[in-house]
Design a protein around this nucleic acid. Structure first.
Length: 560
RNA sequence: GCCUUGGUAGCUCAGUGGAUAGAGCACCGCUCUCCUAAAGCGGGUGUCGAAGGUUCGAUUCCUUUCCAGGGCACCA
């Protein structure tokens, strides 16, 4: 009996009861499983699961919660697998399961394997997830790591809930920043002094050297035609930098389905069709949201809650960044995505109003079709990192220093809107200070037990869940049963950190169980069905930790 | 000024209207002839920033307010 099944049963019971009252109550009350979700009481004296439906519905039925609870509890107690259902406090129904019914979960988990915890709550949804989208004018650094870890984990969680998700990286490969980047690299390659506004950082010189390798006669070309040489150098540096970014992301176990080039938005079709940007201003104009003022072309974004209208085309005829944003949004819409999620740093939260307005101007539902997740920036030992300042801490350096697992886990275990500090010393320490080790250790323990069990001749030929009665066993089983709801909740709220927090609790329950309940008999004691049954539970715990870590993009090692 | 996100134990932080608000760290003890002691067990700590409101019930929702971070371009 899983909590989901229990909730479904309670929904049926409550519906029947309410139908019986409908004679003298015209209120049309419908009961959904969302209303009848049971929760795990903090205090185990309150049973395995608790329901608050009596308090929720008593008022709408005009009844005393405890009286309603009494009636519901009687029905619950009659469910197969339920040992008791008792009324407590203002109207809680505390439910205790038969040990066999609770223990059955262990076998379910082992049978379902990597599928355990996956659901269909978001089935049919085609979600677009854009994150990182760092300019290809430099290496990924600390400022990008949080979104990389969070975005990749979020997409895994959404997929686990049944959604179809496309991870996309928007490459800002057009515009003034790219020009500046090109000039910086060209100067470095030719050994010239850096331009006034050049990008700082040693990597510019490294890129310059690589460009020179590819174009040995760059100096001669520059002497002949500076603009052409600049263009060549810029393109070579861009391709090199983008390749390095992709490489870093792969090593961070972050996967993108699409790298979307901003240039394609500026490029007209070979057959003379207008560029996506040109096309988008016309499309917005058709919707009636475009006007001209003072030589510029504006979009009336204030219609959709933006705090000011935005310029699409400047007085000098050049498109603004907003124009590209609008065209990009329309591209996502045209490609058939429903919800478009943007992961943005708090330093970009001023964009939310205009992005939302674009969705509205495009005729989309600003509530349903666009989501902006704003996150706080990462600190490193208290010092915030800025690319402009030149003191770059690169993702590659962090990976080498801390490893992908520790970094991924740490970045994913906090809510996005919570400030986060990366403490290198803590992340390198192999103690409880570093929760990824705690969780991975629990997993490695399950594998060690599995290996030792096999060596001791303990197999899974018996499964007697009624024997799983130790306090630590009911705790562990209860935790394992919660996993599908945790995944569904994390997906629904777009909060992958809930997976990490859950895993830490699960690991603690597993460690406690390990210390109290042996899978392998001591000394000359015989192997019993209890040991065999516990092997199922051990494997179930390992499976769930593995499934959860996978959602975070963190490995589940066989040994530590 | 406007928008936005925080304020929870000594520290770092969890906590999607429920019962006595939790974890790790730090501090003091305890547990390995036996599956990994990178573990477990025991010991105490809170005006949930403040004040109102909604509710059977508020750390959670609403309003006001104090403090802190971030943002408010015909930049990208």
């Amino acid at each position: 009996m899983t909590p989901q099944e229990l909730a479904a049963q309670i929904a049926r019971i409550l519906s029947t009861i309410i139908d019986g009252r409908a004679l003298d109550d015209d209120a049309s009350l419908t009961v959904t499983e969302a209303d009848t979700q049971v929760e795990r009481p903090r205090n185990r004296d309150h049973g395995d699961w608790a329901s608050n439906v009596a308090m929720k519905f008593a008022k709408r039925l005009g009844e005393n919660p405890r009286v309603l609870a009494e009636q519901v509890a009687t029905e619950i107690a009659a469910i197969d697998g339920v040992a008791s259902a008792e009324i407590a406090g203002p109207g809680f129904i505390n439910i205790t399961l038969d040990a066999a019914s609770a223990g059955e979960t262990a076998r379910v988990i082992v049978t379902e394997g990597s599928q355990y915890g996956r659901g269909a709550a978001l089935e049919g949804q085609h979600i677009h997830l854009e994150f990182v989208s760092a300019n290809p004018t430099g290496p990924l650094h600390l400022g990008h790591t949080r979104w990389a870890a969070l975005g990749d984990s979020l997409s895994r969680v959404l997929r686990a809930a049944g959604a179809e998700v496309t991870n996309e990286y928007y490459i800002n490969d057009a515009g003034a920043q790219m020009d500046k980047f090109g000039r910086s690299v060209l100067a470095a390659a030719l050994g010239e002094p850096a331009p006034e506004d050049a990008y700082p950082g040693e990597y510019i010189h490294e890129l310059g050297a690589k460009v020179l390798e590819q174009i040995p006669d760059l100096a001669a070309q520059a002497a002949e035609d500076r603009a052409a040489a600049l263009s060549l150098a810029q393109e070579a540096a861009y391709q090199q930098q983008l390749a390095e970014i992709k490489d870093s992301l792969e090593r961070f176990n972050v996967h993108f389905d699409v790298f979307f080039s901003e240039r394609t938005l500026h490029t007209a079709g070979a057959d003379g069709t207008p560029s996506p940007i040109e096309g988008s201003v016309d499309r917005l104009r058709e919707q009636g949201h475009v006007y001209e003022d003072d030589g510029a072309i504006w979009v009336r974004t204030t219609t959709f809650g933006d705090d000011k209208d935005r310029v699409f085309t400047r007085g000098n005829g050049i498109y603004t960044y907003f124009a590209a944003d609008a065209a990009y949004y329309l591209s996502k819409k045209d490609r058939g995505f429903g919800e478009k999620i943007y992961l943005l740093g708090a330093d970009h939260h001023g964009y939310v109003g205009r992005l939302t307005a674009i969705a509205g101007a495009a005729g989309d539902d600003t509530e349903r079709d666009i989501t902006a997740l704003i996150g706080q920036l990462v600190n490193l030992n208290g010092a915030k990192l800025s690319k402009r300042a030149g003191n770059i801490v690169e993702l590659d350096d962090l990976l080498e220093w801390l490893g992908s697992d520790a970094l991924r886990y740490w970045l994913a275990r906090y809510p996005a809107d919570s400030p986060l500090s990366l403490d290198g010393e803590k992340l390198r320490s192999r103690t409880n200070d570093n929760p990824v080790f705690y969780v991975q250790y629990a997993h490695a323990r399950t594998r060690a037990v599995d290996r030792n069990a096999e060596a001791a001749g303990i197999d899974r030929s018996a499964f007697e869940p009624a024997q799983l009665t130790h306090d630590t066993e009911t705790e562990l089983l209860g935790k394992l049963q919660q996993y599908p709801a945790i995944v569904a909740g994390a997906a629904d709220l777009r909060e992958p950190h809930r997976i990490a927090r859950y895993l830490e609790e699960l690991a603690a329950d597993y460690h406690r169980w390990y210390d109290n309940c042996r899978v392998i008999p001591q000394g000359e004691d015989p192997v019993t069905d209890l040991h065999r049954t516990r092997l199922w539970l051990n494997d179930a715990a390992g499976q769930v930790i593995r499934n959860g870590l996978d959602l975070l993009g963190v490995s589940a090692p066989e040994r530590l």
